[in-house]
Design a protein around this nucleic acid. Structure first.
Lengths: 109, 109
DNA sequence: ACTGGTACATAGTAGCACAGAGTAGTCGCA
DNA sequence: TGCGACTACTCTGTGCTACTATGTACCAGT
């Protein structure tokens, strides 16, 4: 992946994953797949798992183990109230930043 | 500053500063002031200077020293061709990311 | 037996913004 | 003369994040 994208993802990837979880519960492998489908093709599996563990430890999501037809059991994450609040805060911060960048970009020439 | 904003700025602050420089040359203290004016009130001086040094070392900007009426001489940075190209790449990456997040945000509920 | 897909985990690395402190020059004021 | 306020730049150390590169484990199809 481009280095620029890598750096930009710091701080946003977390929000992206939380947003995915806010729609419906999901597990790591599934999330990785979905990220790839939506164009974030080069996100590494290990990154997602590490992120999910962080999310769990901060109490933003609850975890349940579900047996899988294939391979080891899945760890299904579902966003809880605290996670929802955190996500809303994320969207606020994000819209602030985009507004500022938009202003910069438009006034460019 | 909020921790979320701090993390989001990783990778974007560089682009922001380059965008400021693309309008007209500027020096560190001036850039800090301008960032504060545009709402990024809590960005630390040291961060900006460190970023400028990085920009210089990568050859994205040229530097000239100008004596100041007040205080030590200013280091005036001006974006060069390479920096301009890098900035354009930044905008592309940025618009890609915003498009993906917009999609996620709108399809939320 | 072997390959490939599913699913999770982790040790080490690099990059970035922040905290905090320091260095220097100029000016105004008591 | 001494002090604070403002301008302007520099540096060390810390914490957080995504990546690299592996490894583990389970199952299906050939």
């Amino acid at each position: 992946m481009g280095k620029q994208m890598t750096e930009m993802l710091k701080g946003t990837l977390e929000g992206i994953v939380l947003a995915i979880l806010s729609r419906r519960p999901a597990y790591g492998y599934e999330i990785t797949t979905r990220l790839r489908e939506m164009g974030l093709t080069d996100i590494v599996e290990g990154t997602v798992y590490a992120l999910l563990i962080r999310i769990e430890q901060r109490g933003l999501a609850d975890v349940e183990r579900h047996p899988s037809e294939k391979g080891p059991p899945r760890k299904v994450y579902s966003l809880n109230a605290q996670g929802q609040a955190y996500l809303e805060e994320f969207w606020q911060t994000w819209s602030l930043l985009t507004a500022q960048l938009k202003q910069l970009h438009e006034g460019e020439e």
